[in-house]
Write a protein that binds this DNA or RNA. Structure first.
Length: 971
DNA sequence: GGGGTCACG
DNA sequence: GACGTACGTGACCCCT
C-alpha cells in the first residue's frame, strides 16, 4: 500500500538527466561559481585547527548529492585559473571592481580542488580563461559527440549555453534551468541572452552595457528588433528620445559588452573529452578527506551514498542475474554501457541495488510455516519493516489484501491474503480467470503476526504507519513499538521537501521504486491490489518494505546528529496511534439533512442563475471566471476590470464586492451564487458521498507530514474547513451529529497564537494583559491608540484586532491596509505605533529573520525546525515572502506543537478518569469529541485541563468548551 | 494539470 | 524604479 502522501511524488526536485541512459551524459560543475555562493550561503564553520571550511562542506554535500542523482554519468569540475583573462586585453576594467575574496574563503580554494580530487573527479582549468569559457567549450564538444550535458551552476552568464542537449541545474536551489527558466530571467530565449546582457550590462562583473537600460527594456528591444546589431542599425527609429540617444551614443560600448559576456566555446581543451568518463571513486580516500575536514556527520552518509551509487563494482544490475522473481518481472535491466545510445528514454531509470547489498531476495510467503520463519527472523534482528496492501486508501474501511515485511536491507517478503477475492465476491462467472492463489487465511496470518507486532522487543517500522496501524487495529492487533520513516524525515527536513516514500527513495537512495500505477494502472483501467498478479505484487510490496527499512536505517541516526530526538519522540511519534484511532472512529453525518440542503440549494441556484442571465442580457456559465469577467467588463462595461498575470480579468469576491457597492445588482447576485455553489459542490454534495457504507460515518485522513509548520492537514474529505462563518454555512455544521445517546464536545484554545507571540517575543504589556484575562484586542487598542478601555469603540478595536492578526502573519503595510480598507501608508503608521508600544516585538522579528537567513530554517518553542528555502532568494519579493513565513512559522508551529502535546496526553487522561469520550477531529486549535451524554460535562473538564496544561508558559493557555447535539451547537 | 476561487484556522 | 505583497492548508470548477 502506498500511502496517500507518498503517491505521485515522481516529478522530484531532482536534477535533469544528462543521460542517454548509457553513462555518456556529462555534468560540468562550475566549481569557481559554487565556491562563492556556498561561502556566502552557509554559516561559518571551521576545522578543529581553525581552518574555515563552510564552502568545502557545501561543495562536498553538493557533489555527493550530484553523484547520487547523476547516477552513472560523467562528472567534471571546472575552475577559473587566475584573475586576468583574455577579456582584460580588450577591456581592462573587466571584473575590476571585484574585491579580494574574504580571508575566510582564501584557504578554501585549494581545499575545494582537493575535495574534487578526493571524489576522483577531473579538475578542468586553463590559464587565461574563465571557468565559463571552458564550460562553453566542453559543452560544445560533448554535444557534437552526441553526449547530453548538464551545467551545474546558478550563474546567469552560463544561461546563454542552454540549448537542446544542454541544460543547467542550479545546485543551491535544487532546480533545473531550461529554456523556460532562462526566458523567465532574461525575457528572451537562450540564444539571445548575450544581446540582452550586452544592453543591460552587469555591475558585478563591470560590464558597462547601455546606461538606463535594464533587463526588462533590453528584452523588449531585442524581441522587437531580433538581435543587437539589428537594433543598433535601427537605433534612430526608436520613439523614446532618451533611449534613442543612449543607444546611438553607447553603441560601441554595447558591442564591447557583448564580447565580454559572450563565452568562448573554442578554447583549447586542457583534457580530451574522452577522458571525461564515469570513474570509479576511491571510497577510502574520500572518507579520509572528509574526516580530515571534521565532516563527521556526513561521512556515514557518504559511505552509504557511494556504496549504493551505480558506479561501484556491483555492476549496477547490468550483468548480474536477477536474484528473484521481483527483479525478473521488473523493468528492463540497465543497458550495457558499451551499447549505442538509444533514442527512447527508459521508462524508468535502471534498477540498482541499494546500500552494500549485492542482491535483493524477495520471497512470496504462502504458508504458515514460511511466515513463522519470518517472525523468527524478526525476533533475531529486533527490527521489522511492515507495509500493508489494501483495496482502498481509506484504512478505516479498506480490505487487507496483503502484508509485506523486511528484516534487513534487501531481504523482504510479501504475504498475499486476499488476492483474487474480489472476482469471487462479485460472483462473476469468468472461466478464463485464474483460480485464487494459495494464501494463508487472513485470520491465521494475523494470529501468527500478532505476537511479533505486539512484541515490545521488536521495533516495527513503517512509512506512514498510521495507515497500517488502523488495519492491524481492525484485526485486533495493537502494533507497538512503532517507528515511522516518514515522520522521522518530516522532523529532520520539514519544509525542505516532501516526505513520500518515492521522493525519499530518489533523494536518499538514488532509487526509483516501482510506481503504483505501473502495478495497478490508472484512470478507468485502474485495478485494485487484490487483482494484481502475485509476481508483480511481490515485486512492488516487498520493495516498499525493503525501502522503508533502508530509509529508516539512513534517517534514524540523523535524529541524534541533528538534535531532533525530543521533537520526534514527544510530538510526532506518539501521535501515530492517537490519530489512527481518530480516523478510524470517523464522525457521524446526518445524510438526510445534507441531501435536503442540496435540494434547496439547487432550487436557489437555479433562481439566481436566471436572474444573473437576465441582468447580463445573455446566458453564460457563471462558474467560469473567464466568461464572467468578459460579461462584466467587456459586455456590460462595469468599470475597466483588473487583469491578473495571465491576462484574465479578476472576478474574486473583493472585485465583485466593490461592484456591488457601486450598485451593480448582478455583482451581488453572482456573489450569492458563488457562495451557494461552493457550499453545494464542496460540502452538501461531496460529504454525502464520503459516508462509508460500512460504518455509516465519514473518515477523513489527517496528513501528519504535509505542512511546513508542523500542523496537521485533513483530506478526503477535508474536515478542517467545514463552514462556520455564514448562516448558510452553519447549516452544514449542523449535519455533523452525535450518535444517539451521545453529545459532541468541542474544545478550542482561545487566542493561542497571539499568546505565543507575547511569550516568544517576551512582550511584557501583552503578557500582562493575557494574565489579567483582558479582552486582548481591546487592550492592545487601548495601548496602541492611547484610548482608555471604557472609551473603546468597536471600530478602534477592529483595527487593533487586524493588527494583532497581521503580526502573526508577518505584517506588511500593504496587507494590513487591504484588510482594513485603508491606504498602505496609513496602515504603516499603525504598525509603526504598534511596534513602538511593543518594542520587544520588533527586536524579536528581526532576530527571527536574522536566524532564518543564517541557518535556512526557524525553530518553534519545542525545537521543531521549519526550513525556509526562499530566505536567501535574491529576488526581493520572494525574499520578503520568505521573511513573513519565517515570522509566522514559529508561531503557527509552536501552536501546533502544543496541540500535539495535548492530543498525545488525551487518551490516557480520559482513560484515567474513566471517560469513554472519543476524539474525532482536530481543527488546528480545536478538538472535537463524541461522548455519552451523561459524561459530557466531566469530559469537558478533563479535556480543558489537558489542553491548558499542555505547556507551561509565561502566559496562561485558555481552552473553552461547548457541548451540543451537533457541531454547530457545540462550537 | 494549472489557475482561479473560496472554505477553514 | 519596479516589483508584489499578510501566514498555513485542500477541494472544486473551468479550460487547455
Amino acid at each position: 500500500m502506498t500511502d496517500a502522501t507518498a503517491a505521485s511524488q515522481n516529478d522530484a526536485a531532482g536534477i535533469p538527466a544528462a543521460s542517454n541512459g548509457d553513462g555518456s551524459g556529462l555534468y560540468l560543475v562550475d566549481g569557481s561559481g559554487f565556491i562563492f555562493r556556498a561561502f556566502h550561503a552557509l554559516p561559518m564553520l571551521t576545522r578543529p585547527d581553525g581552518t574555515p571550511v563552510n564552502a568545502v562542506l557545501g561543495f562536498s554535500n553538493m557533489l555527493l548529492k550530484l553523484l547520487a542523482d547523476a547516477r552513472a554519468e560523467a562528472v567534471a569540475v571546472v575552475f577559473d585559473s587566475k584573475r586576468l583573462n583574455f577579456r582584460n586585453e580588450f577591456y581592462p576594467d573587466y571584473k575590476a571592481h571585484r574585491p579580494e575574496p574574504p580571508e575566510e574563503l582564501k584557504p578554501q580554494f585549494a581545499l575545494i580542488r582537493e575535495a574534487t580530487e578526493a571524489f576522483c573527479l577531473p579538475c578542468l582549468e586553463l590559464e587565461g580563461y574563465e571557468a565559463d569559457d571552458l564550460i562553453a567549450t566542453y559543452a560544445r564538444l560533448a554535444q557534437e559527440a552526441g553526449r547530453k550535458v548538464t551545467i551545474v551552476s546558478s550563474d546567469k552568464d552560463l544561461m546563454q549555453l542552454v540549448r537542446p542537449g544542454v541544460g543547467m541545474f542550479d545546485p543551491m536551489k535544487n532546480k533545473a534551468i531550461g529554456p523556460d527558466e532562462v526566458f523567465e530571467k532574461f525575457g528572451v530565449p537562450p540564444e539571445k541572452v548575450v544581446d540582452v546582457q550586452a544592453l543591460a550590462g552587469d555591475s558585478v562583473d563591470n560590464v558597462p552595457g547601455v546606461p538606463g537600460i535594464g533587463v526588462k527594456t533590453a528584452a523588449q528591444l531585442i524581441t522587437e528588433y531580433g538581435d543587437l546589431e539589428a537594433l543598433l542599425a535601427n537605433a534612430e527609429k526608436i520613439k523614446q528620445p532618451a533611449r534613442r540617444q543612449k543607444l546611438i551614443e553607447f553603441a560601441e560600448q554595447a558591442r564591447i559588452s557583448r564580447r565580454l559576456v559572450l563565452l568562448d566555446e573554442n578554447v583549447p581543451p586542457p583534457k580530451p573529452l574522452d577522458e571525461l568518463r564515469v570513474r570509479e571513486p576511491d571510497h577510502q580516500r574520500l572518507i579520509d578527506f572528509l574526516k580530515a575536514q571534521g565532516f563527521r556527520s556526513i561521512v556515514s552518509r557518504v559511505e552509504m551514498e557511494m556504496l549504493k551509487d551505480g558506479r561501484i563494482a556491483d555492476g549496477a544490475g547490468s550483468s548480474a542475474a536477477p536474484a528473484s522473481a521481483a527483479l525478473a518481472s521488473a523493468a528492463p535491466a540497465a543497458k550495457d554501457p558499451a551499447a549505442a545510445p538509444s533514442d527512447e528514454p527508459a521508462e524508468r531509470p535502471a534498477r540498482k541495488t541499494v546500500l552494500n547489498v549485492p542482491e535483493v531476495r524477495y520471497e512470496l510467503v504462502q504458508d504458515a510455516d514460511a511466515l513463522r520463519r519470518w517472525v523468527e527472523r524478526a525476533r533475531e534482528t529486533g527490527v521489522l519493516a511492515v507495509d500493508t496492501e489494501t483495496d482502498s486508501l481509506t484504512p478505516a474501511t479498506a480490505t487487507l489484501v496483503g502484508v509485506s515485511l523486511s528484516t534487513e536491507p534487501g531481504i523482504a517478503c510479501y504475504i498475499p491474503l486476499a488476492h483474487g477475492a474480489s472476482t469471487a465476491a462479485a460472483g462473476q462467472l469468468d472461466f478464463d480467470a485464474p483460480p485464487p492463489p494459495v494464501q494463508i487465511p487472513t485470520a491465521e496470518a494475523m494470529a501468527i503476526l500478532k505476537d511479533v507486532l505486539e512484541d515490545s522487543s521488536v521495533l516495527k517500522i513503517g512509512h506512514n504507519f498510521k495507515f497500517d496501524h488502523q488495519l492491524f487495529a481492525r484485526n485486533g492487533i495493537a502494533v507497538s513499538p512503532v517507528d515511522d520513516s516518514m515522520l522521522i524525515s518530516y522532523v529532520l527536513d520539514g519544509g525542505a521537501h516532501g516526505h513520500g516514500m518515492d521522493e525519499l527513495a530518489e533523494m536518499h537512495l538514488a532509487y526509483t521504486p516501482i510506481p503504483f500505477k505501473e502495478v495497478c494502472g490508472t484512470g478507468k483501467n485502474q485495478i485494485t491490489f487484490d487483482r494484481v498478479p502475485l509476481d508483480k505484487a511481490l515485486a512492488y510490496a516487498a520493495e516498499d518494505a525493503d525501502i522503508t527499512l533502508r530509509l529508516w536505517t539512513l534517517l534514524k541516526p540523523r535524529l541524534v546528529d541533528d538534535r531532533m530526538v525530543t521533537v520526534y519522540e514527544t510530538l510526532d511519534r506518539p501521535l501515530v496511534p492517537v490519530v489512527a484511532d481518530m480516523e478510524r472512529a470517523g464522525v457521524r453525518i446526518d445524510k438526510k439533512a445534507l441531501s435536503d440542503l442540496s435540494q434547496s440549494l439547487s432550487v436557489r441556484l437555479a433562481e439566481i442563475e436566471k436572474d444573473v442571465h437576465a441582468l447580463a442580457g445573455q446566458s453564460f456559465n457563471i462558474g467560469s471566471p473567464k466568461q464572467l469577467g468578459e460579461i462584466l467588463f467587456d459586455t456590460l462595461k462595469l468599470g475597466t476590470g483588473k487583469k491578473g498575470k495571465t491576462g484574465a480579468y479578476s472576478t474574486d469576491s473583493s472585485v465583485l464586492e466593490e461592484l456591488a457597492e457601486q450598485g451593480h445588482t448582478i455583482a451581488q447576485r453572482v456573489l450569492d451564487w458563488r457562495q451557494l455553489a461552493k457550499l453545494k459542490s464542496t460540502y452538501t454534495d461531496a460529504l454525502q458521498e464520503k459516508i462509508s457504507p460500512v460504518t455509516g460515518r465519514v473518515h477523513t485522513a489527517f496528513a501528519l507530514a504535509a505542512t511546513n509548520t508542523g500542523r496537521l492537514s485533513s483530506t478526503d474529505p477535508n474536515l478542517q474547513n467545514i463552514p462556520v462563518r455564514t448562516e448558510e454555512g452553519k447549516k452544514i455544521r449542523r449535519a455533523f451529529v452525535a450518535s444517539p445517546g451521545h453529545k459532541l464536545l468541542s474544545v478550542d484554545y482561545s487566542q493561542i497564537e497571539l499568546r505565543l507571540v507575547a511569550e516568544m517575543a517576551n512582550i511584557q504589556a501583552l503578557k500582562d494583559a493575557f494574565r489579567d484575562g483582558l479582552d486582548i484586542h481591546a487592550a492592545t487598542a487601548a495601548q496602541v491608540f492611547g484610548i482608555p478601555l471604557d472609551q473603546m469603540t468597536p471600530d478602534i478595536r477592529r483595527k487593533a484586532k487586524a493588527i494583532n492578526f497581521g503580526i502573526i502573519y508577518g505584517i506588511s503595510g500593504f496587507g494590513l491596509g487591504r484588510q482594513l480598507g485603508i491606504a498602505p501608508g496609513e496602515a504603516n503608521a499603525f504598525i509603526k505605533t504598534y511596534l513602538e508600544r511593543f518594542h520587544e516585538l520588533k527586536v524579536w522579528m528581526e532576530s527571527i529573520k536574522s536566524f532564518a537567513r543564517q541557518h535556512g530554517y526557524v525553530v518553534t518553542l519545542f525545537g521543531r525546525r521549519c526550513y525556509m528555502p526562499g530566505i536567501q532568494d535574491k529576488n526581493a519579493a520572494r525574499r520578503a515572502f520568505a521573511e513573513r513565513q519565517a515570522i509566522n512559522a514559529p508561531i503557527q508551529g509552536t501552536a501546533a506543537d502544543i496541540m500535539k502535546r495535548a492530543m498525545n496526553r488525551m487518551p490516557a487522561a480520559l482513560a484515567a478518569a474513566g471517560s469513554s469520550a472519543r476524539m474525532l477531529l482536530q481543527v488546528h486549535d480545536e478538538l472535537l469529541f463524541e461522548v455519552p451524554e451523561a459524561e459530557a460535562e466531566d469530559a469537558a473538564r478533563i479535556v480543558r485541563g489537558v489542553m491548558e496544561g499542555a505547556a507551561h508558559l509565561g502566559v496562561p493557555l485558555v481552552a473553552e468548551a461547548g457541548i451540543g447535539d451537533n457541531w454547530e451547537e457545540a462550537h
